[in-house]
Simulated assay, not measured.
Amino acid sequence: MALPARAVILACDDRSSAQAFRIGGSAWGLWFQLEPEATAVDGETRAALRAWEYRLPARFAALVAARAEHTATRAFFTQRAGAWEDRFAYQTPAYDAAVAGMELRRGQTALDLGCGTGRAMPALRAQVGGEGTVLGVDVTHTMLTAAARIGCTDSGHLLLADCARLPLPSASVHGIFGAGLIDHLPHPRRALREWARVSAADGTLLLFHPSGRAERAARHGRPLSPDEPLAEPNLRPALDATGRRLAVYDDAAQHFLAHAVRTH
């Protein structure tokens, strides 16, 4: 089967023309031969093809389900990306103050995970200097487009990626900054394990929000839940499990800040 232009194969069977593919980020296709002609293949091959007839749709469905975890996040931020920086630029001094507490050194590598419009990137660049590396990572394309439009590429590189599956080598990052990120992740502990994987031995992690947990809960008209991943009884053991120690936990009215350092 000749695939459409720009198609990316997701799964295929080398003994037949079975294929699953995508085009761009939202168009998906599935094609496979259900019934091989009796004279075309022997009995063993026919049985294998029949088995594949069930495996291919199952693998395709699993892939779609995994990607769908980000659908709600992308939908929420896509429609707000254009006005995001105009609306929240006043928070920049709070971001700068939070980043200052990371105490990164010149020449190191820093990530702004869930960077949005890249508000923390200039402060990260100031710490690591021109010889260092700053990456702004986000799963929403329109947010990165907005970041580029306001000049954040002057401070570092922008990367479209899932922050729980980073395309980075192990032990390559010295500082990870995440503002308002954990609450949007479907599997926070999985993400913390991935951040531990890419962190260097002296790596530091700063989780931040320009308002406290209680204030955010009240703003959204809900009670403060003890099950939230940023609640200290939940966050501390989750960090411990990834080889990090929670050095600072500050859930104030004006901000949330959790600073963790590597223990091994």
Rank of each mutant, 00 (worst) to 15 (best):
A2K: 14
P4R: 12
P4F: 12
A5G: 14
A5S: 13
R6A: 09
R6L: 03
V8L: 14
V8T: 13
V8E: 15
L10P: 00
D13G: 06
R15A: 06
S16A: 13
A18I: 04
I23T: 14
G25H: 13
S26G: 10
A27H: 09
L30C: 11
E35L: 15
E37N: 12
T39E: 14
V41N: 00
D42Q: 12
D42N: 13
E44K: 05
A48S: 11
A48I: 01
A51N: 09
W52M: 09
W52P: 00
A62W: 02
V64P: 00
A66M: 06
A68I: 01
E69C: 00
H70F: 14
T73H: 02
R74N: 10
R74Y: 03
F77D: 02
R80V: 10
A89Q: 15
Y90Q: 12
Q91C: 08
Q91F: 08
P93K: 13
A94K: 15
D96E: 15
A98W: 02
V99H: 08
G101K: 10
E103V: 03
A110H: 00
L113P: 05
A120L: 02
P122F: 04
A123E: 04
A123S: 15
A123C: 05
L124V: 04
G129M: 05
G130K: 12
G130M: 14
E131K: 08
L135E: 02
V137W: 01
T140N: 02
T142W: 05
A146R: 14
G151D: 10
D154F: 01
H157T: 12
L159V: 14
A161G: 05
A164I: 03
R165Y: 00
L166G: 01
S170D: 15
H174K: 03
H174R: 10
G175H: 10
G175Y: 10
A179Q: 06
L181M: 12
L181F: 03
I182L: 15
D183C: 12
P186W: 04
A191W: 05
A191H: 00
A191V: 07
E194V: 02
R197C: 04
R197N: 09
V198R: 00
A201I: 03
G203H: 09
G203D: 10
L206M: 10
L207V: 06
F208T: 08
H209E: 11
H209W: 04
P210T: 01
R213P: 13
A214I: 11
A217N: 09
A218P: 00
R219E: 14
P223C: 06
P223A: 14
P226M: 10
P226E: 06
D227R: 13
E228P: 00
A231W: 02
E232L: 13
P233Q: 08
P233E: 13
R236W: 09
P237W: 05
L239S: 08
L239D: 05
D240I: 02
G243E: 11
V248K: 12
A253L: 15
Q254M: 15
A260H: 02
R262N: 09
